[in-house]
């Protein structure tokens, strides 16, 4: 069992948990993910690591409940435990493989959107700890949904932007990047992590601006070790498995439209499980999928 040592609500419907997982904490690197499973009947949920403490043997995860299993997950309290918690999975970020001197000569920009802010954090922190100061943009719909601002400020030069202008700059992350470039900023490398639609438009823009861009894909997955092939992603004209070849890929080669389509594959089935979870015994059909009408 993998005990939850700390639970926080970062924003409406965004949760943070620090979980005891010494094997994962000992070996994980920025960019990698874990798979968590609440109990016997829950799904295996892949989540990119938000932070880790090797000495304490802990992993921090941040998630937004959307299906039955993540709803169960948010109901766990400090002192409760995950039945399963496995990792680290996937390849570490390429950045940490590069010679530090080369990284210091590069101007690196991180673009984080919504709950995708979490997986950006360990990369920015890692660079900071190795003496590389990067820029980061955190984008959120509104002020209340900006997460991890304090943590980011300690390790990088941060810009916050909100869609409604309620905090920081106004507009989406793409506008913020455009504005920064107009203000004279120059970037050699970009890492963008967030909702698929955000990554798509960031990549469209960085391609025009000529900034190489890495994205982190979070497709449907079952085992996370290469066994099922559910996480197939088109990268250029090649089919890649996000779990073993990724999760980070060259964003300019990703077919985002297809990736978004694939993400919706189990939507109706997941919706059915979610309704059954929310309504419990009171769910007597009507969703059109569960057969409860029969």
């Amino acid at each position: 069992m993998y005990k939850i040592l700390k639970k926080e609500v970062l924003a409406e419907n965004i949760y943070s948990m620090v979980v005891e997982a010494p094997r994962v904490a000992k070996h994980c690197e920025p960019g990698q993910f874990i798979i968590a499973k609440v109990d016997e009947t829950a799904e295996r949920i892949p989540l990119t690591i938000c932070d880790y403490d090797r000495a304490a043997g802990t992993i921090r995860i941040v998630f937004m409940p959307i299906g039955a299993s993540t709803l169960k997950m948010k109901d766990l309290q400090e002192g409760d435990a995950f039945e399963d918690f496995v990792g680290p999975l996937g390849r570490p970020s390429d950045l940490i493989e590069e010679p530090i001197e080369e990284l210091k000569n590069k101007k690196i920009l991180f673009i984080a959107g919504g709950v995708g802010t979490a997986p950006v954090y360990p990369q920015v922190k890692w660079l900071h700890e190795h003496g590389v100061e990067a820029d980061a943009i955190i984008g959120a719909k509104t002020k209340d949904l900006v997460i991890l601002e304090k943590e980011f400020k300690e390790v990088c030069n941060l810009y916050v932007t909100t869609d409604d202008g309620s905090y920081g700059r106004t507009g989406m992350v793409t506008k913020c990047l455009e504005d920064l470039v107009k203000e004279g900023k120059h970037y050699d490398h970009c890492v963008a992590i967030g909702p698929m639609i955000m990554m798509k438009f960031v990549c469209k823009l960085t391609k025009e601006l000529g900034i190489p861009t890495i994205v982190s894909m979070n497709p449907i997955m079952v085992d996370g070790t290469g066994m099922c092939g559910a996480c197939r992603v088109m990268v250029g004209d090649e089919v890649k498995f996000a779990c073993v070849d990724g999760p980070e890929f060259d964003g300019h080669l990703i077919d985002f439209d297809q990736a978004m389509q694939r993400q919706a594959m189990y939507r109706t089935e997941e919706g059915r499980a979610k309704l059954a979870f929310l309504e419990g015994e009171t769910h007597h059909g009507g969703c059109g999928h569960c057969g409860g009408d029969k």
Binding site: G226, G229, R232, Q258, R262
Partner: peptide, 18 residues
């Protein structure tokens, strides 16, 4: 290990799986 696919058109469509 890793499941093989045929490499034919349409294989990454929704509804195709190993």
């Amino acid at each position: 290990g890793l499941p093989m696919f045929m490499g034919i058109p349409g294989e990454t469509a929704n509804g195709v799986m190993s």
